[in-house]
């Protein structure tokens, strides 16, 4: 091959990337501009606010590690949504499954607290995945058997989970010293090992990256994953072709539930080392935003998740130092999503 043809291929690749990223960059700029206008009108220092949002993650080792810790549940929650989304189904129950996973992990970690790490840690993580899958089993089965809308059933199970975690943390294994519903800690063998000691960064990061890569290979480079995408693109055509779409819906939801459950187990084994009511934070909503911004593209999900993690870490810093409510950043994220969706319309024309 001549050097010239390689270079042409290279620019082709670059311009394709540019075309793919263009709408995203435009959406981010437009959202920040809109939010900046509002902030300026309210008399806040806009450049300082933006510098805080965008650069807190990169100014210190602590910032980087905070961002990576936040990245783990966000990317997993996004995948819990995007896997069924690829097949055309909506799992809006990621936080319920996260809580169930956290409960499963904590239960294993407390009951078998004496086991050595090489046994307990895998059991804790497995317990979380199973519990997450179990939490979506009812909605998935209702869809499989009766075609009952999965959006509603998965959402409603979230509210059931909020009560269950409160019950377990106050009645089953309560820590009487804590002022908030909290359980006693799990056995030390169930802790995720640390990649960095100070400030602590747990090995859940490696798990999350491995799972994101595995999901990408599954949906984009295997025939089973292609069936998933084909079903999402045209259910009827997929069925005529001979794909068992009902099984596919069921299994994709279960896989999503297991991954959401794992995100709960990682919060327990890596961050809290116990069960705490409110452990779900707002990871579900951010996960949905990430999945939708990435349009279910599994090569993009980890990068979008990292970007949102940067914004979130910046948002809490901004709230602390500049007294601007963190919700401002959540609205910016919702706007980014809307602008990304709008770019589809422009491209259609």
């Amino acid at each position: 091959m001549t050097e010239q043809s390689l270079r042409i291929r290279g620019t082709g690749w670059l311009s394709a990337l540019g075309r793919a990223l263009g709408p995203y960059v435009a959406a981010v700029v437009a959202s920040f501009a809109a939010a900046g206008l509002v902030l300026a009108l309210m008399g806040f220092n806009v450049p300082k606010a933006y510098a805080t949002i965008l650069f807190t993650s990169f100014r210190s080792a602590n910032g980087i590690i905070q961002t990576l810790i936040k990245f783990v549940p966000l990317v997993l929650q996004a995948l819990a949504f995007t896997i069924p989304f690829k097949a055309g189904k909506f799992n809006i129950g990621g936080e319920g499954q996260l809580i169930a996973g956290a409960i499963g992990a904590a239960a294993v970690g407390i009951v078998f607290a004496g086991l050595p790490a090489f046994l307990l840690l895998p059991l804790v993580l497995l317990g979380g995945m199973l519990a997450g899958a179990l939490w979506i089993l009812l909605p998935a089965w209702l869809l499989y058997r009766f075609r009952i809308n999965e959006i509603l059933t998965t959402v409603l199970m979230n509210f059931v989970a909020f009560e269950l975690i409160d019950y377990i943390a106050t009645n089953v294994w309560p820590d009487p010293a804590a002022g908030h519903p909290t359980t006693i800690p799990i056995g030390a063998g169930g802790y995720l090992p640390l990649l960095v000691q100070q400030p602590p960064l747990h090995a859940g990061l490696v798990l999350a990256i491995l799972i994101a890569a595995a999901v990408y290979v599954y949906t984009d480079h295997t025939s089973a994953g292609y069936e998933l995408i084909a079903t999402g693109a045209n259910e009827r055509a997929a069925r005529v072709y001979g794909i068992n779409v009902r099984n596919l819906f069921f299994l994709s939801l279960l896989l999503g539930g297991a991954i959401a459950g794992l995100s709960g187990a990682i919060e327990v084994a890596g961050v809290q080392h116990r069960l705490i009511a409110g452990i779900q934070s707002n990871f579900l909503l951010l996960g949905l935003i990430i999945g939708l911004i990435a349009k279910g593209n599994h090569a993009a999900v980890p990068f979008v998740a990292f970007f949102i993690a940067v914004l979130e870490v910046g948002a809490s810093a901004m709230q602390r130092t500049l007294m601007i409510p963190g919700e401002m950043v959540f609205i910016v994220e919702a706007f980014i999503l809307l602008f990304v969706l709008l770019s589809d319309v422009l491209r259609r024309r």
């Binding site: 935003i289 401002m328 959540f330 609205i331 919702a334 706007f335 999503l337 809307l338």
Partner: peptide, 12 residues
């Protein structure tokens, strides 16, 4: 997306 926007705006 509108749900997210409403959630954020109401609290803000």
């Amino acid at each position: 997306a509108i749900f997210f926007l409403g959630l954020g705006l109401s609290n803000l």
